[in-house]
Design a binder for these strands. Structure first.
Length: 596
RNA sequence: GGCCGAGUAGUUCAGUCGGUUAGAACGCUAGCCUGUCACGCUAGAGGUCGAGGGUUCAAGUCCCUUCUCGGUCGCCA
């Protein structure tokens, strides 16, 4: 029979010497170092403890047990002959008197070695996630996640926020990502949708008089995965404040996040409150992206004016802008530069160019010859010194910015001394435009979401309507929190006025009926007296990923799905019993047909 | 959906110009070893080279098709 443990595998010390103890855990290893003499390592959540085997009977007992079986060991604690300072329990060992197998591991060969699971094929890790999680390095990320979530809860509660859960089965939202749908048994042909975010509910809570709301909220979006984006589902620290401005929201996060990053982060936090605020357009111009990695000290520049009249055709294309990023002290070889340019082209969709100033102050390599007739001007404009490498992007503004932004990241990481990798650098991106010209439609569309309050309110929209200002110049108090080039969070001061909401929709050729139809609950609620309100929703998974210093978001999710949104451990998604489909009034078209 | 990369022993990988019996490390099995801690030493077992087709006297290697996984772009209010 299984008895209670007296100790876990991480706590025995010199003080326990002489005591009779019972531990339990997984048999990690058996090192046979002599005839009928061996060391057995037992591992549990808390650590590992060494059991010394020095009788023929015990040796035979342990030798029959497959690694990774669970065992219970009762014995006496004694001081080790040779101690191991690398292990917390390294001063002691247990001389066993009784050993019991609690859960047999039936296989003497595992899909991977537990302690080296991070090197194993990801598919195998995900299929045998329970083995993967036995690896302390893997488990620690999940423990970190628990600690971070607990700290977030505590901090938000201390700031007067109430944690309120909102429905998981709700209505499909007409905007945004693809929905996950759930058939409604009692309503043939109708569907619930899993929430992409609790956006509308939290705004309704504001109208309800809840002053400060938060939730560690599950969000569901049926979009493709990325390294930093889990397919299907993820968690946000969703929050909203009534009678609040953008600054009020910033103050809360600048108060809540830094201590958590300081306590649980792998690196130091470089940013102090208030975090740097960068207007959206300035971010695009200086960093080539709206999620700049401020650990890199490079700034992009526009050199369009200096490229007029060059012999290089791309510089002279209609509407082309030329952007440059200069990195000093470059020792990159021609081969390295080419590889870097190729990577940039893959990621930005546009080939970048380059030239450099050599150690003698001559412009050489790449497109250098096109600048030969204006060497002094360009040297002056870019502040070139010997051993400077210049990355160049050409194209319509957006394309050129994107390309130079990718180039900036790559050069910053590749050239010594331009990136402080081991720190957290925060910034707010502010003043997002309210509208943009849609690439497909060619007409005015909402740039991000339609819930934001345009700066200047109704008056601004009316001016735009009268043609007094460019609608593209209208900004919103909409903001992103960025850390190390990762978009941690997006938020806004919301539009709480039905009249302004309708007007905002009219700008994109929609009207009152569209607002009512798409957001009936919110529109109705706002007609009953809504407070001005603002909020934000930092991604929990991404935050933990940054804190853990991981590049893949799957390392901080307990049971992640693979790239194709499959849980190969559980077999999801999978087919279901025809009877279930019948109850749900669902007919499945032949898959082949669906794929045609 | 596009592009790039990968798929060879239980695992991680190597495999030259197409050429004899497809190798290494870890793991596994057996033996040796009384202070190991990534224990060490000796020996052994273990392969549908992702799948299908083709070229060839001969294919892990070349060609075509296809599947799977990863990265990336699209997408992600």
């Amino acid at each position: 029979m299984f008895q209670s443990r007296t100790h876990n595998c991480g706590e025995l010390r010199m003080d326990n010497i002489g005591q009779t103890v019972t531990i339990a855990g997984w048999m990690e290893n058996m090192r046979e170092v002599g005839q009928n003499f061996a060391f057995v390592i037992v591992r549990d959540f808390y650590g590992t403890t060494q059991v010394v085997v020095d009788t023929e009977e015990m040796f035979r007992t342990f030798k029959e047990i497959n690694k990774e079986s669970t065992v219970q060991v009762t014995g006496t604690v004694r001081e080790r002959d040779s101690k191991n300072p690398k292990i917390p329990t390294g001063d002691i060992e247990i001389v066993p008197t009784e050993v019991r197998v609690l859960g047999k591991c039936r296989y003497n060969e595992l899909p991977f070695e537990v302690n080296r699971s991070r090197e194993a094929d990801e598919t195998a890790r995900l299929k045998y996630r329970y083995l993967d999680l036995r690896n302390p390095e893997v488990k620690d990320n999940i423990v970190l996640r628990c600690n971070v979530v607990a700290a977030l809860r505590q901090a938000m509660t201390e700031h007067g926020f109430l944690e309120i859960t909102t429905p998981i089965l709700t209505a499909s939202s007409p905007e945004g990502a693809r929905d996950y749908l759930v058939p409604a048994r009692k309503h043939p042909g109708q569907f619930y949708a899993l929430p992409q975010a609790p956006q509308q509910f939290k705004q309704l809570l504001m109208v309800s008089g809840i002053d400060r709301y938060f939730q560690i909220a599950p969000c569901f979006r049926d979009e493709d995965a990325r390294g930093d984006r889990s397919p299907g589902e993820f968690y946000q620290l969703d929050m909203e404040m009534a009678f609040a401005t953008q600054e009020d929201v910033f103050t809360v996060l600048e108060d809540v996040l830094p201590p958590i990053f300081a306590k649980y982060g792998k690196y130091d936090t470089a940013s102090e409150a208030p975090f740097l605020r960068i207007p959206y357009l300035e971010a695009l111009e200086k960093y080539g992206t709206d999620k700049p990695d401020l650990r890199i000290d490079l700034i992009c520049q526009d050199i369009t004016a200096h490229c007029q009249g060059t012999e290089f055709p791309p510089f002279n294309e209609e509407g082309a802008e030329v952007k440059a990023v200069v990195v000093s002290g470059s020792k990159l070889t021609r081969k390295q530069i080419d590889a870097l340019c190729a990577d940039t082209e893959v990621q930005s969709g546009k080939k970048p160019y380059w030239f450099r100033m050599d150690e003698n102050g001559e412009l050489v390599g790449g497109v250098a010859k096109f600048f030969a007739d204006r060497k002094d001007t360009i040297t002056d404009a870019l502040g070139l010194q010997p051993d400077c490498l210049v990355g160049i992007a050409v194209g319509p503004r957006g394309q050129a910015q994107k390309t130079i932004g990718v180039m900036r990241n790559k050069l910053g990481a590749a050239v010594e001394g331009h990136m402080k990798k081991e720190q957290y650098s925060f910034c707010w991106i502010v003043d997002f435009p309210m509208y943009e010209i849609g690439e497909e439609s060619g007409e005015l569309e909402f740039c991000h979401n339609p819930f934001s309050m345009p700066n200047g309110g109704l008056e601004t929209l009316l001016k735009a309507e009268r043609g007094e200002i460019d609608p593209l110049a209208i900004t919103a108090d909409q903001y992103d929190l960025v850390c190390n080039g990762v978009e941690l969070s997006s938020g806004a001061v919301r539009n709480h006025d039905p009249e302004i909401m309708v007007k905002a929709f009219e700008m994109v050729r929609l009207g009152e009926e569209d607002v009512k139809q798409r957001f009936p609950a919110m529109y109705n609620a706002f007609c009953y007296g809504a407070p001005p309100h603002a909020g934000i929703a930092p991604g929990v998974d991404r935050m933990v990923m940054l804190l853990a210093g991981e590049d893949s978001i799957r390392e901080v999710i307990p049971f992640p799905m693979n790239k194709n949104a499959q849980d190969i451990m559980m077999g999801a998604p999978g087919t279901v019993d025809p009877k279930q489909l019948e109850e749900l009034h669902i007919a499945v078209t032949a898959v082949e047909e669906a794929e045609e």
